[in-house]
Design a protein around this nucleic acid. Structure first.
Length: 747
DNA sequence: GAGCACTGC
């Protein structure tokens, strides 16, 4: 229930201290250390990173800057409006300095704030300056939406359509042609390209954007670019590299002679400039100031353990005291969003009739797309929009009209806990955000004008937050990466990475790959491992799929694996219609458990998809409490997997249908992939891992919950109140002994 | 008898 009385004390939770206008603490820190310069009156600041770390000024500042000033104004303008817009971007005044810097150096670190225009402009500058030579310019992005929308934007700036001069390439979607010179790609896509072309020979320039996010794929890309630079850019060292490479030396050597030299540009937010520069042997660093409206930041005087309640009170303080403008509240997850949504709605309904109304909009990834679009529609007159969002609004989505941000300072983080027992679990914990995340959230209030950010934590708490998040490579499962690197004859433990993962984490990946048969006992890549890496799947699922042909159930395993690797969940959970959802689910239920239940759903969906219109499909999914997004994505994934199957000469049409033994064939294939995820029933009714010592329970969402079967396989372990297995099927105990490696061992 | 941050191939 809303606490109306609490509102009276609300103004007291904030400290009176207001940080000066447009400088967030992070920016101020950098102003001190690096003397931030606003390019609007002072062009660019160009420094070598080595000099940066020492105090005082240095002369190298002036060279490039002078060049920027001396440069002639741009020639006659064609598409006037777009051209004017481009000229107004902060980076424009430093165009020549940036181009010269990149021309003269193999590696450049470009630090640009949001709104500087670096991501759209730098590739165009390089193309216009002829720096791409005969190759392409690749710009990597961590997210697909960013890659595709940036390509459209830049294509229109170049007065062409996407797919000609400017293109993109993301999973399931590509717009490129032989004319393409600027290509926006997801970082995962470029890592996958490495497998087919280890020298990235099609590219003259690789720009790694958003490098500060330090995704697993960005880190792998950076490590590869570093070695690649040595191979491609120094003729003498090419020979040395060639000699080092096993067997393929001569090929590499020849290739490198013909290639363009490679230019690498690392683009990042401010915080890790030095680290990137150091990683690339003291690379040059360029700073570009962004364009952001001032945001006033408030901290609370005391800490607010009940952040949902504090957010509630802060929202109504804004609503009653402050001028119009929408409010964006950052919360860790769906649960908090739903509870705050109810409280705000309830209290807003009790406000006097003459007060302006409140339009509450929840926003999280799992929300059906139809409800997500609500936040983008303009706020009705006399209303104030209140958006309750997860991290999704921090980077992936920009919401117009936001003037006020309320930041709870919390987010959820998935973490993989590797155990020495050779198996591990995922946990999803609510934890404090980082300083850079807090700055990013505050910035969301200043997209269109002066903004305000209310942090539900003290200034001391902010200062105590870690500056940046731990890079993904230190907290994720590495199995897939280790396998990919093996295909490039690399070892993750020997790779020159910005951050090195724990030994146990690498050891876990190696054990997993040996058990899956991707590596042999001497840890060398097997032919099976090479095949597995060709599939865009987690290694266990790739192994299950490759076990299917000899069991005659490729089509069925393909269907199951596609759903399992979809990013959203198949079943919709609804608080309100729990019983109805359970009833609907019962229709698909298979006695062996969740994997064959999934197959039943896919088959039913295929029938509906063949017979119904798009609206009919949607209707059916809603009635059955199924997530259409998951099914649609699975259809895409399956099409992609079928392509890979064809290249591998695997007939994906082969299936067991409803024949005798169909069920056991499918489960046998699944066991090959989920070997590590197997458990035996214990006398007390719990289950114990076959490969580890962990005691686990079947997750209540499983169709096998409370069932006692001799042995199970499962998709994943989640640690919440207990260690739960999710996605569970019952299997005969002897299936486990059929896994090839285990067979060898028992012999 | 529980609960799902966000990406990517």
């Amino acid at each position: 229930m809303p606490k109306i009385a609490a509102l009276h004390g609300i103004s007291n939770i904030y400290s009176k201290h207001k940080p000066p206008g447009h400088a967030t603490p992070r920016k101020r820190a950098h102003k001190r250390e690096h003397a931030w310069v606003d390019v609007s009156d002072d062009d660019l600041e160009v420094k070598s990173s080595k000099k940066l770390s020492s105090k005082g000024t240095n002369k190298s500042d002036h060279g490039p800057r002078k060049k920027a000033r001396l440069s002639a104004p741009p020639g006659p303008s064609f598409k006037e409006s777009l051209h004017q817009q481009r000229k107004q971007l902060p980076i424009y005044s430093g165009k020549d300095a940036v181009v010269d810097m990149i021309r003269e150096n193999d590696v450049t670190v470009l630090i640009g704030e949001t709104g500087s225009g670096k991501t759209t402009q730098v590739p165009q500058y390089l193309l216009e300056a002829g720096l791409s030579g005969s190759g392409m310019i690749a710009i990597t992005q961590p997210r697909k939406v960013a890659a595709t929308s940036l390509a459209s934007r830049v294509a229109s700036e170049q007065s062409t359509s996407v797919g000609s001069l400017v293109g993109y390439s993301v999973r399931f979607d590509e717009a490129c042609s032989s004319d393409t010179r600027i290509k926006y790609v997801t970082d995962g896509m470029l890592v996958r390209e490495l497998l087919g072309d280890p020298l990235l020979s099609r590219y003259s320039v690789v720009i790694v954007d958003e490098a500060h996010e330090r995704t697993l794929r960005t880190d792998l890309l950076l490590a590869n670019l570093k070695t690649l630079l040595r191979t491609r850019n120094a003729p003498t060292s090419a020979v040395r590299e060639g000699a080092k490479g096993k067997g393929k030396g001569k090929g590499k050597e020849r290739a490198s002679e013909k290639l363009n030299p490679l230019k690498v540009v690392i683009m990042s937010a401010t915080l890790e400039a030095e680290k990137f520069s150091k990683f690339f042997g003291g690379a040059q660093v360029v700073y570009v100031k962004g364009r952001q409206h001032p945001v006033t930041i408030y901290h609370t005087k005391t800490s607010q353990p009940d952040y949902v309640d504090a957010a509630f009170r802060t929202f109504f303080q804004i609503h009653t005291d402050r001028p119009s403008g929408d409010v964006l509240i950052f919360l860790p997850g769906q649960e908090d969003i739903e509870s705050l949504e109810k409280s705000i709605q309830l209290y807003a309904n009790q406000l006097p009739k003459d007060a302006s109304g409140v339009l509450v909009c929840p926003m999280y990834a799992a929300l059906p797309p139809s409800q997500q679009t609500k936040i983008f529609s303009p706020t009705p007159a006399g209303m104030r929009k209140c958006i309750l969002a997860t991290n999704i609004a921090e980077t992936s989505i920009t919401i117009p009209g936001v003037k006020y941000v309320i930041d709870t300072g919390k987010c959820k983080e998935k973490r993989y806990l590797a155990k020495h027992t050779g198996t591990g679990f995922d946990t999803l914990l609510t934890r404090d955000i980082t300083q850079s995340s807090a700055v990013q959230r505050a910035g969301r209030a200043g997209r269109e004008g002066k903004g305000f950010c209310f942090r539900l934590y003290t200034e001391e708490a902010f200062n105590a937050l870690p500056i940046t998040a731990e890079p993904e490579i230190l907290r994720c499962t590495l199995t897939s990466s280790v396998l990919q690197l093996r295909c490039l004859s690399q070892n993750l433990e020997e790779l020159d990475l910005m951050d090195t993962p724990e030994e146990s984490s690498i050891a876990f990946a190696l054990i997993a790959l040996v058990l899956l048969g991707a590596l042999d006992n001497r840890r060398s890549l097997t032919p099976l491992g090479r095949k597995m890496a060709a599939f865009p799947l987690e290694p266990p699922l790739a192994r299950a799929l490759l076990a299917a042909p000899e069991l005659g159930c490729t089509s069925e395993v393909l269907a199951i694996v596609s759903v399992l690797s979809s990013s959203s969940s198949l079943f919709v959970n609804s608080h309100d219609a729990r019983d109805a959802a359970a009833d609907a689910r019962r229709k698909f239920r298979h006695p062996s458990g969740d994997h064959l239940t999934i197959l039943n759903v896919v088959r039913a969906y295929e029938d509906v998809a063949g017979a119904e219109s798009k609206a009919g499909r949607r209707d059916w999914c809603r009635k059955m409490f199924l997530n259409e997004r998951c099914l649609a994505e699975a259809v895409n994934i399956r099409a992609q997997l079928r392509d890979v199957c064809e290249r591998q000469q695997i007939d994906w049409r082969v299936g067991v249908g409803d024949s005798q033994g169909a069920e056991s064939a499918i489960l046998r294939a699944m066991v090959q992939g989920l070997v590590q995820n197997t458990a035996f029933l214990q006398p007390d009714g719990s289950y114990k891992q076959v490969m580890g010592h962990t005691i686990l329970k079947i997750h209540p969402s499983s169709s096998l919950v409370d069932k006692k079967v001799p042995a199970i396989i499962y998709d994943e372990l989640v640690y919440t109140t207990h260690i739960y297995a999710r996605g569970v099927s019952a299997i005969p105990r002897n299936f486990i002994a059929e896994v090839p490696l285990l067979k060898q061992r028992t012999r």
